[in-house]
Design a protein around this nucleic acid. Structure first.
Lengths: 327, 327
DNA sequence: CTGAAAGCGCTTACAG
DNA sequence: CTGAAAGCGCTTACAG
């Protein structure tokens, strides 16, 4: 910057203003500064700027897994919205482990981000204190039940699962199993399980056909289906904690030559891109992953502008999408 | 830091050392510093540290799309390896657009990352100059053909596609079509197309059955298949530029009741997780996306340690995986 | 093993 | 509209 100032024949302060607040600089000077910067290939050092202004224009985001397209949607929404305002994203993957999450937050905080986006509301006990001490905007996502550290964007997993369960019942299925997620202790998945179980119980059906699985991904659907069939050979429908598992079940049905939705009805959760493509189409819950990211970005941006955030907990809702996998 | 120093009764310099080079500080002092830091909830400000040391311990990564699990694998490998060394990842999505990529690089450079990881070797003309002026480690990934700006990790898309094409020919298929990627101008996809075409030509088969598609994702496989069948109703095999498209073809076959691999052989590229799961199994090229990320991280780390990098272009190879979609 | 001085490259806050 | 001074919170390089 000093070089640019010298070349343009102005003070460093004027160079700074020419970039950050061009309106405050006369047109002639601005042009001289820009020419000098271009000639020297000057790229402002944001690290120095951050230190001086104590604003970093960085937001940290922590997600359990990048293999999950729901979270990828959130990251995209977040990153797109932030980029429009000149913010950048610092990303960490935490693998469904609160201790890893806490470690990642501790490291990220050293970069002094202006905001931090967490997945879920289950953290180590010290998390709230750590984050409050840092005095930054915090958004917890994919969850609607607090208590929250600061702000939140999500939807009710339980209500969604309840609605999905009721639809399966309404379509005439009577022996309905549930394939749980490999990390059933995560509250979002507890809620999904409870929603489905509640739907079955309310319909007077057996709510005990719940399969725990250890396999991640598609294989979990297959092994979950096996476990359920071992206990209930007359099983006529399966609801899965995620679309990936449900696709695994559809593939297994194809392998067995079982017609879907007649021999077995199948439903998932998430409405991943593939849900609309796989024959005969997967009935599922559409969640707004991208919207969650955009909303989180907006909460953080509003906080940066010093505005009080009126509604710090946003419900983005869900939608049941019925496709051919249910009769 | 000043507060911690005061409370521990030492100079700020000693606090700094207690964190960065504990071996240089006596055990008694170190303990006092640690106690003071814990009591005050002190988190070292890395922004200040970066400015003073002119090392950021950040690496920027640019990928075309996070929806592509190949790149997600690279990001994971990169991030895992970097985290082990206390580095963090700054991520940007560029959407297959060199101009967007250049804009993102310009912004990221302001953060003074220690290294930058690009996807591919096709950039705007100024890119090399920009990056060389920044004097940081640069790794171009997913490509083996230079010229490279600095270092590279990849494999030969052409050799992989050639090998895949030969396998399809060897399995007895004779009317073989190719479904191109929606961004056919990207060199990686040019190479794949050329590899397949070369295999067909060498076998004396018609190499002109190439379908351009505009749809992204699964739908591209479906529309590509339609386009090929309109031109060659006797089509007996399809090779796709990506696994996602190939899965789209498999789904379309299921919908039509066409037996795979007998009515139609299908092959993809990428060996995404789903390739092993979808019936009857997808024949494809296994690439080492995660390994690319890990290797890129290692190149950057080695450069940071001041070491000259002996082999700045690394070929990670590929593997053809034959599954039930080919007879 | 510990510390005082200087500086990293900007911005804040004030003055003119 | 422009600039001189001070400082952001660390680390480098030197001294003892």
């Amino acid at each position: 910057m000093a070089d640019v100032a010298r070349r343009a024949g102005v003070s460093p302060m004027t160079v700074s203003r020419a970039f950050k607040a061009p309106a405050l600089v006369s047109a002639a000077v601005r042009e001289r500064v820009e020419a000098a910067a271009a000639a020297l290939g000057y790229v402002p050092n944001l690290v120095a700027g951050n230190l001086a202004s104590s604003r970093s224009r960085m937001v940290a985001a922590l997600v359990p897994s990048l293999a999950n397209s729901n979270f990828v949607g959130t990251i995209k929404g977040l990153s797109d919205r932030l980029r429009q305002e000149g913010y950048q994203l610092l990303l960490s993957e935490t693998g469904y482990d609160p201790a890893e999450e806490a470690a990642a937050v501790a490291v990220l905080l050293g970069r002094r981000p202006d905001g931090i986006v967490l997945t879920g509301a289950q953290h180590v006990p010290q998390m709230a204190a750590m984050l409050r001490a840092a005095q930054i905007a915090v958004v917890e996502t994919w969850e609607l039940r607090g208590p929250f550290i600061d702000m939140a964007v999500g939807f009710s997993h339980r209500a969604a699962a309840l609605a999905l369960g009721r639809m399966v019942v309404a379509r005439g299925y009577r022996r309905i199993g549930y394939v749980d997620f490999p990390h059933p202790e995560v509250r979002r998945f507890q809620e999904r399980r409870r929603g489905v179980v509640a739907a079955l119980r309310q319909a007077g059906l057996d709510p005990t056909l719940v399969a725990s699985v250890t396999d991640e991904g598609y294989a979990g659907g297959r092994s979950g289906l096996d476990a359920l069939l071992a206990r209930a050979p007359d099983l006529d429908a399966v609801i899965c904690a995620t679309d990936v598992q449900a696709i695994g079940v559809l593939f297994e049905c194809a392998r067995r030559g079982w017609p879907v939705p007649d021999r077995l009805g199948v439903a998932g959760f998430g409405d991943y891109e593939i849900a609309a493509e796989v024959p005969p189409g997967l009935t599922t819950v559409r969640t707004n992953g991208r919207g969650i990211g955009v909303a989180a970005a907006e909460l953080i941006l509003r906080r940066q502008e010093g505005g009080k955030v009126a509604a710090p907990v946003i419900d983005l809702g869900f939608e049941i999408v019925r496709r051919g996998s249910l009769r």
